[in-house]
């Protein structure tokens, strides 16, 4: 097995086992999707209008929950030092970790979203657009999140700072993701899918390099 695959499967295994947080993210997502309709009232027309945006915000926040474990847990128990010494470059390791985070968080959130969209009375085409947009956009959430996770990995209270530095950078994902749902609902072409795909690809390709730099700076001191 190549070092890349070894790290990927290890991270995946850790995420689904006890204390991994993959299931917690799903629970958090489902709770957001339950609380918002209870808060704003059961008007399905209003909820359908907001649904795309709310579910996107919920998914992004849920994906952030498990980010502090991406590097921090490995830093605390020393395995990050071993990963840094392995034949796999830190950039490659960061990419493997981002991929594992997406497979254990972004993908399940995407698959759960059609079920939760029932709460918001989304039409069939809107549900398809939402699922598609999450499939395209959640890799960007994992990738941008990994930058924040790498910069805060040695902080004791990194979990509090992480959302503050990651969420402003996720504005395009939420905006264009919800934009795809809006396009399906209104029928007005807005090109959101192109922007979302571009952002997601660029973030996934560039963030391993930034995250590896962040890990290096934290391990050096």
């Amino acid at each position: 097995m190549t070092p890349f695959l070894a790290l990927l499967t290890r991270d995946l295994r850790l995420s689904v086992r006890e204390g991994g947080g993959a299931v917690l993210a799903l629970g958090f997502f489902a709770l957001v999707a339950t609380l918002v309709p209870l808060g704003v009232g059961p008007d399905l027309n209003l909820l359908a209008k907001m649904g795309g945006g709310i579910l996107w915000v919920g998914a992004a926040l849920a994906a952030l929950l498990s980010l502090d474990r991406l590097f921090q847990a490995d830093y605390e128990d020393g395995s990050l030092d071993l990963i840094a010494l392995s034949p796999l470059s830190l950039e490659g390791a960061a990419f493997a970790k981002i991929a594992a985070h997406w497979l254990s968080t972004g993908l399940p959130l995407t698959l759960l979203s059609p079920i939760l969209s029932v709460f918001f009375g989304l039409s069939g085409s809107a549900v398809i657009a939402l699922t598609m947009s999450l499939a395209i956009g959640t890799p960007a959430v994992s990738a941008v999140g990994a930058i924040g996770a790498s910069l805060t990995l040695s902080l004791r209270r990194g979990g509090l700072i992480l959302p503050l530095i990651v969420l402003p950078l996720l504005v395009p994902a939420v905006m264009f993701g919800a934009g795809m749902v809006l396009e399906a609902q209104t029928g007005l072409t807005n090109g959101a899918v192109g922007f979302l795909a571009a952002f997601s690809l660029a973030a996934s390709l560039l963030s391993p390099f930034v995250a590896a730099q962040g890990v290096r700076l934290n391990l050096a001191g």
């Binding site: 930058i147 910069l151 805060t152 040695s154 902080l155 209270r157 990194g158 700072i161 503050l164 530095i165 969420l167 402003p168 950078l169 930034v210 730099q213 962040g214 700076l217 934290n218 050096a220 001191g221």
Partner: peptide, 26 residues
């Protein structure tokens, strides 16, 4: 918010030299 995140990250890292490098990346 980017400014706020940057300031918060600076204040959270005790070692000043390390804080400078990490915040520079951000």
């Amino acid at each position: 918010f980017l400014y706020l995140g940057y300031i918060a990250l600076w204040n959270a890292i005790e070692d000043e030299t390390r804080a400078a490098r990490i915040c520079a990346v951000l």
